[in-house]
């Protein structure tokens, strides 16, 4: 009881501190000038109507390359930690007929949703990362339904590497044409597309497609390693 009262008092004191600290922050004013700059120039400089996407892929495209690399390292790390000789899946109970048939029917639709999400990254919320995750869930669904299913590593690993290389290649072409890495030559020099339609925003859709494929294949690879490893742990 005493403990509980002490905890409540403690929470109240902390809450008071935080409230006091936040009360001094002026809301609604620009603290950072760079944010204002992005919002004012995003349309003519990148052609995207989704400012968040434009910042992620265009202004901060180099950082996003870093993020993709982090994911790649995570995937490689999982593979390195969980690498054993060829392991079988440990599932014992097969999915029911309804689940199996349902996942077969849903597979194309979920892949289409994923592709829709990452191709419309510059027009709607979403983009490469959620789109790739959606595509990975399609494979996870098949994994859950069929106990003997395994992905084809010979197809997925080259695809993953290829998409990583093409991201860098897009950046290098920008370096060659415009003088800095990830220069958006499609929008700034060719001026292809109209703002708000699908074909716009320079290379943002291209890079998001690359990221989508990369994230999808990488997450599928991680799922595959994790599911196969479980047999070793349980004995």
């Amino acid at each position: 009881m005493v403990k509980r009262i002490l905890a409540i008092i403690f929470i109240l004191v902390i809450g008071f501190w935080i409230a006091n600290a936040l009360a001094k922050v002026p809301f609604g004013e620009d603290k950072m000038l760079v944010g204002k700059y992005y919002l004012e120039n995003v349309k003519e400089q990148t052609g995207a109507i989704n400012a968040v996407t434009a910042v992620v892929v265009n202004y901060r495209g180099f950082d996003t390359l870093g993020e993709v690399t982090v994911l790649f390292i995570a995937s490689t790390g999982v593979a390195a930690l969980l690498w054993r000789r060829r392991e079988e899946r440990s599932a014992e109970v097969d999915g029911s007929l309804i689940l199996k048939t349902g996942s077969r029917v849903l597979l194309p639709f979920i892949m289409l949703f994923g592709a829709y999400i990452f191709i419309h990254g510059h027009l709607t919320p979403g983009g490469g990362f959620p789109g790739g995750a959606t595509i990975a869930t399609a494979f996870l669904m098949i994994y859950l339904a069929y106990k003997e299913y395994e992905i084809d590593h010979n197809l997925f690993e080259p695809l993953e590497g290829l998409s990583g290389v093409s991201y860098v290649a897009v950046g290098l072409i920008g370096l060659a044409i415009g003088g800095y890495f990830l220069f958006d030559w499609i929008w700034q020099i060719w001026e292809v597309g109209d703002i708000g339609r699908l074909l716009s925003a320079g290379f943002i859709p291209i890079i998001y497609t690359i990221i989508g494929i990369k994230v999808g294949t990488e997450l599928t690879g991680i799922i595959d390693r994790m599911i196969k490893e479980s047999k070793e742990v349980e004995g």
Partner: peptide, 16 residues
């Protein structure tokens, strides 16, 4: 439509 297809499937999987 997606919910109409998936909701019974997940209910079925859970109940099984």
């Amino acid at each position: 439509l997606f919910l109409l297809l998936t909701n019974p499937i997940s209910a079925h999987a859970l109940i099984r």
